[in-house]
Simulated assay, not measured.
Amino acid sequence: MATEDENRWSWFCHETNISSEAGDDGAYMSECTVNFAAFLLHLLFVIIACLVLIWRRWWCVFREVTSPYLIKWPGHNTRWVLSFILVVLAFASLGEGILTEMARKEPSPQLQFYLPACLLLIATIISMLYYQLAENWKSPGLLWLLLAYWFFCFVINVVRITHLLQENVAGIDAAVLWIAVLMLVSYILLLVLEVHLVALEFQICRIRGKQYDILSRESNNDDMWYTENCVSFPYCITFWWMNWVFKLGFQRPLEITDLGSLPKNHRAEHLYEIFKVDFQKELEYKTSIGKSPSVWKVFLRVFKGEIFWAGIIRLIYDLTCLVGPLALNGVVAYAIAYGDEVREPFLNSLIYLLF
């Protein structure tokens, strides 16, 4: 029976000394089974998602578009941030698998170490494209596929983490374990977002009998070209929506009429009214207790969201400044520890630096 199992997985998990070192062939085959299940799940999602998008784009008759601007769904920015985190984790898993494969010193490749990570990377990118198109087409019904995909990813990661801990395949300080834990957290958050959107879409569809715009942003001005509020998160953080300004400014000097009108929430008058209302409440409260109003408190209350996220972005930037020195330290430590014992140490160090 053991020989039949080994032959069955020979193309994905070649014979190795890992199981013999661990003294548990069953644990090794279980690890191979989990990795193959993950590989198969990502592959099926890529195929099905591509087929659904092709069908929706070319053969589906009903494709309602009620606004020239993107109508963002709840959790739009959070979803994109989690997707970018998954891309980073996929790269980290791929790098960890390649290093594990190169450290084995065996001629037969172990596809289970890096092939599931490759498919995970592709599937995550496809999921980002899938969500972007579903949002553009205002088709929340397409989210059912993402809901199923995140659920099965969650199940497989729970099984993987349980296997890593119970079979002593990886210790608490192993990179593969922490990558799996971070992926599990990301899948849970994405699953919550999908459940919320699907439940909301079902509720409104039951009332109105058709799909709807979860969030409405209307613009009646023909010169409303400042579309930051109505573009996706990647377009917003890269200022891609301002390409028309850059191209026009490259051709000739810009004039004030070229910029068009601003949305209400970006106008100084709108911000002043919000600040004025909160300051009036602060003034009345402080006067009633015989104290002077605090402008700083009003400022923090009115712009607490912007200040918080600006601080988070600044903290992330400061932390990323430590990546270079720490990565270089890891490369040097890796080369010193293994030296001539590993194959192609320079390539190993380079992969470590990249991932």
Rank of each mutant, 00 (worst) to 15 (best):
V245A: 06
F246Y: 12
K247R: 15
K247A: 11
K247L: 15
L248I: 02
L248W: 06
G249N: 08
G249M: 11
F250G: 14
Q251W: 06
Q251E: 15
R252G: 09
R252N: 10
P253V: 03
P253W: 05
L254K: 04
L254A: 09
E255Q: 15
E255N: 15
I256V: 15
T257A: 06
T257Q: 13
T257S: 14
D258Y: 02
L259G: 01
L259C: 05
L259H: 09
G260V: 02
G260S: 01
S261I: 00
L262D: 04
L262Q: 00
K264N: 08
K264F: 01
H266C: 12
H266K: 13
R267H: 03
R267V: 00
A268F: 08
E269A: 12
H270K: 09
L271H: 11
E273W: 03
E273R: 11
E273S: 08
F275Y: 03
F275S: 02
F275P: 07
K276T: 01
V277H: 12
V277R: 13
D278L: 10
F279W: 00
Q280Y: 04
Q280R: 13
K281F: 09
K281E: 09
E282N: 05
L283M: 14
L283Q: 15
L283V: 15
L283D: 10
L283A: 12
E284R: 10
Y285H: 14
Y285S: 12
Y285W: 10
K286Y: 09
K286N: 07
S288N: 00
